[in-house]
């Protein structure tokens, strides 16, 4: 079967796009480079216990989005988490704490949401798209995309959606052979969306460690942006786990430094501000988010569609393509892109 649409990236926007597109009667295939869905809405298991090392909790205000979140999170979720916020700093998305915003932390981890969205979809994990080109096979037939996977396989589709962070999407488009005019125009647009890196440390503490009195600390100065008491979201008896996230500037400057050095620096700063015990974890893991989030205010208003000569269509969506940004913005932008693709498909017959 040739899909009507290939979605590159199984993050929130890609999954929301695929789900909505399929609900509208389209055939869709999702390709994901990683071993799991969700992108930055990420949960990993540490000693069997879920740890959210990307997005710390989910939040939103739109009723349709909240209904979807509720369906995904199930009953075992902490509503209004985080309950106890310490420190003078500003959260990544201040809107999460404004009136009218609902916050939610699933006990199974934030990846419960993308897993819910992916249910029933044709998602291929570990599928890395190496190159993208437009072919006009069949002489005069409608143009088609050709996606070359690292496995050597080639997929074809009349429409492709890149749901990667905008700068990554731009980098991919830059390498499309022949640089079709319709694509070149998207590059400066993608570059308006600014992404920020985030160095992240997961720290697990000995059983006897008493739980801290906060859920999230926002120091507001220094190199640490957010200190999350991750295990507060889990069922009683969970082992104490903290997630430390560095501020964008420090993260940018240390992207290429050894993980041990910045992990230690973050733990020591957290210990100095929030309790000496933090410097002595049982073990740690480090993760580098090169494009953790979109700088607030640099989001575009809606997803983008380009129609190339010959009819091949390209769409871009993600948290940088909706003014709400974050997980909610990503979800909306995916659905909005689905509506535009479906509309064009119907008009094209």
């Amino acid at each position: 079967m040739t899909p009507d649409l290939v979605v590159v990236g199984a993050g929130i926007s890609g999954l929301a796009l695929a789900r909505e597109f399929r609900a509208g009667g389209g055939r869709v295939l999702v390709l994901e480079r990683a071993r799991g869905v969700g992108g930055r809405c990420a949960t990993r298991r540490v000693d069997g216990q879920p740890v959210d090392h990307g997005t710390a909790f989910l939040h939103g205000r739109d009723p349709a989005f909240l209904a979807e979140l509720g369906a995904a999170a199930g009953p075992a979720a902490s509503p209004d988490w985080p309950h106890v916020l310490a420190g003078p700093g500003t959260p990544c998305r201040p809107a999460a704490f404004e009136a009218g915003s609902v916050r939610l932390a699933p006990a199974a981890g934030v990846s419960a949401f993308p897993k819910h969205l992916a249910r029933g979809l044709d998602v291929r994990l570990g599928a890395n798209v190496e190159s993208l080109r437009v072919s006009r096979a069949g002489g005069g037939a409608a143009g088609n995309w050709e996606l070359a996977l690292s496995t050597g396989e080639t997929l074809r589709s009349p429409a492709v959606a890149l749901t990667l962070p905008a700068p990554s999407a731009a980098a991919m488009l830059e390498h499309v052979p022949g640089r079709p005019a319709g694509l070149a125009a998207l590059l400066p647009l993608c570059r308006l969306v600014r992404t920020l890196p985030c160095l992240t440390v997961i720290a697990r503490y000995p059983e006897a460690t008493p739980p801290p009195g906060w859920d999230v600390v926002l120091p507001g100065s220094g190199i640490l942006h957010t200190l999350v008491h991750d295990s507060a979201k889990r069922r009683p008896g969970a082992q104490l786990v903290l997630v430390l996230q560095a501020n964008p500037r420090y993260s940018r400057e240390h992207l290429d430094s050894p993980k041990d050095s910045w992990s230690r620096a973050l733990l020591e700063e957290a210990a100095a501000g929030s309790g000496a015990w933090i410097a002595l974890p049982e073990d740690t893991q480090a993760h580098t988010w090169e494009q953790a989030r979109v700088s607030e205010g640099s989001e575009l208003a809606r997803p983008v569609v380009a129609e190339l000569e010959g009819g091949a269509r390209l769409g871009l969506c993600g948290d940088g393509f909706h003014p709400a940004g974050g997980v909610e913005g990503a979800w909306h932008s995916g659905r909005a892109l689905a509506a535009r693709f479906l509309d064009r498909m119907r008009r094209a017959g």
Binding site: L189, A301, P303, V304, V305
Partner: peptide, 10 residues
């Protein structure tokens, strides 16, 4: 300066 860019900007 395209319609699509202007749409994307809101």
């Amino acid at each position: 300066d395209t319609v699509e860019a202007n749409l994307a900007l809101g």
